[in-house]
Amino acid sequence: MNAYLPREAEIVERIQETPTVFTLKMRLTDDAPYAFDAGQFNMLYLYGVGEVPISIVAGDGESLTHTLRAVGRVTHGMAGLRVGERIGLRGPFGRGWPLREAEGRDVVVVTGGLGCAPAVSIIHHILSHRERYGRLTILQGVKHADDLIWRAQYALWSQQPEVQVLLAADVAAPGWGGHVGLVTALFDRIEFDAARSLAMLCGPEGMMRGSAEGLHQRGLAAENIYLSMERNMQCAVGHCGHCQFGAHFVCRDGPVFAWPEIRELLAVKGF
């Protein structure tokens, strides 16, 4: 088994979410099975350009969905992909969200920026196994109100029983109904039983650090706070060394970590 070798995938749908954010739905062209856990990622390969690690938003037996932002060489190139075009895909890699540990508890999901993409799989999982989980609180922060993608989905989620959605934008726009400021300012509005809750955070590191501290202050135990980390990843199997973070390789041992596993280094610039 060669973990480096990609499989071929065909783009079956493309959605432009914002001027720079786009969603690609794809299907593997071989017959080999594919299964993933929420929070894991795939390496997507653009022909002749290279690979990038991208978290899995959703998937079923038929297709896989990835949401990307065009920032580098590969993602800029992928922004130009059309339906029917082929890419490479290998995965899934890494350790995903602690959905089993979260059963029977209230769950808080805090995301920032495009951080909501890796967390969508959590929300889908909880909503499709509703009886296994307590209250679900979804908090999403963005820099500018226009950066918020999937507004309709947030509206839909907020109408589900026992689901609370809280949105924050540093800069509001006309019609913005959410909070103006940091997402952490919304923490005192979370309706949950902190002692029996579990939190999953995804987004910029500063936001995750602030959120972990804030939730901890509200009574959540440090070991019940989970974060999804990002680092340069090229091999995805703990060989290439770029994502080494203290005792861990983020690609293999993460990307999801319990806060105490990474808390000390997370506060230090340069790791």
């Binding site: 060669n2 070798l5 990609p6 071929e8 082929r86 490479g88």
Partner: peptide, 17 residues
């Protein structure tokens, strides 16, 4: 080299070790 990919006329990708 970790692998090689050939692109067919129809855009199909064939990966090989």
């Amino acid at each position: 080299s970790l692998w090689r990919v050939n692109r067919e006329d129809g855009g199909e990708l064939a990966f090989s070790e």
